[in-house]
Amino acid sequence: MPRQADHELRRRQIARAVWRLATRGGLEDVTLRQVAAEAGVSARLLQYYFGTRDRLLLGALEILNSDAEQRARERLAALGEAPDRRALVRGVLLELLPLDEERRNRHLVYAAYFIPFATDPALAAAARDAPRALEALVADLLSQGRKLGQVLPGVDIEAESALLVAGATGLQTSVLLGQQSPERAVELIDHRLGGVFTPVAG
């Protein structure tokens, strides 16, 4: 067990080095040697844990996603034992916004992955499924909300889930660039949810 734990710590140490390089200057020209120097490990050790550059970038992203999912679960759990579906959908969408230092840093790293994912066929496939997974989660929550009478009649669940995720993703970029404040981004999310869910009683 300690040996496996040491492996995980080393992988995370290297992943954090990728994240730091990503936020400082992007990932297009980052090399294994640069990551090794940033992580304070040998290039040989880095290759032992991740192999190729593509596997390193994907591995670092997987660790980042795993951390993000864990924090999202914790924040959603903090909503209480039986939150309504609007609160859950809102919680999912707010994870896409840079509302604090942790989420801001994470989304800066995601932004650095954009060009490699858009131009490298070997990496592009890894990027395609993430929005669909989020859309499926939001669609499922909207379907549950409809059964509970919490979603307005006539809402197209598939279209709305896609628009909600795309809208939150667009707001993420606007906040990072300073075009929208975090508070305004949350207001816009709440405004859109008001057109999807029935008013909260009381």
Rank of each mutant, 00 (worst) to 15 (best):
D6V: 12
L27G: 06
S161Y: 06
V175P: 03
L79N: 10
V41F: 03
L123I: 04
R128H: 09
Y110M: 13
L171I: 04
L193W: 11
T23E: 14
Q179Y: 10
R24A: 05
V109P: 00
V41W: 02
G51Y: 11
L134E: 01
F114R: 15
H107N: 07
E183K: 09
A36W: 12
A43P: 02
L148P: 06
S174V: 10
Q180I: 09
E187Y: 03
G80Q: 11
E69I: 14
Q179W: 12
L137P: 07
D54N: 12
S161P: 02
P153E: 07
G40W: 00
A118W: 11
P121G: 07
L188G: 03
V196A: 03
Q47Y: 08
Q34Y: 04
G170A: 11
A5E: 14
P2S: 09
A87P: 01
L21Q: 04
P2K: 09
A122D: 05
R90V: 10
K147W: 06
S174Q: 14
L142V: 05
E158S: 15
L46H: 01
A136T: 12
A37Y: 01
R86L: 09
A159L: 14
I115P: 08
A125V: 15
A77K: 07
Q144R: 15
L46E: 01
R12Y: 01
L108F: 08
L46C: 02
P116A: 08
I157W: 06
P153K: 07
S174H: 13
F50I: 07
L64I: 04
V109G: 00
G145Y: 10
E183R: 12
Y113E: 10
E158H: 14
V196H: 02
G40Q: 01
A87L: 03
Q180H: 13
S66G: 14
L45K: 07
E160N: 06
R85K: 13
D100E: 06
R106S: 04
P121M: 13
A127H: 14
G202M: 09
G167I: 09
L108I: 06
A72R: 05
A15K: 00
L58F: 04
R184T: 07
R106T: 05
Q180T: 13
G91F: 12
E74Q: 11
L58T: 02
V18F: 00
R12P: 01
L57D: 02
L99A: 08
G40I: 00
L21P: 02
G195A: 11
E28N: 08
T173P: 05
A127V: 10
A5S: 13
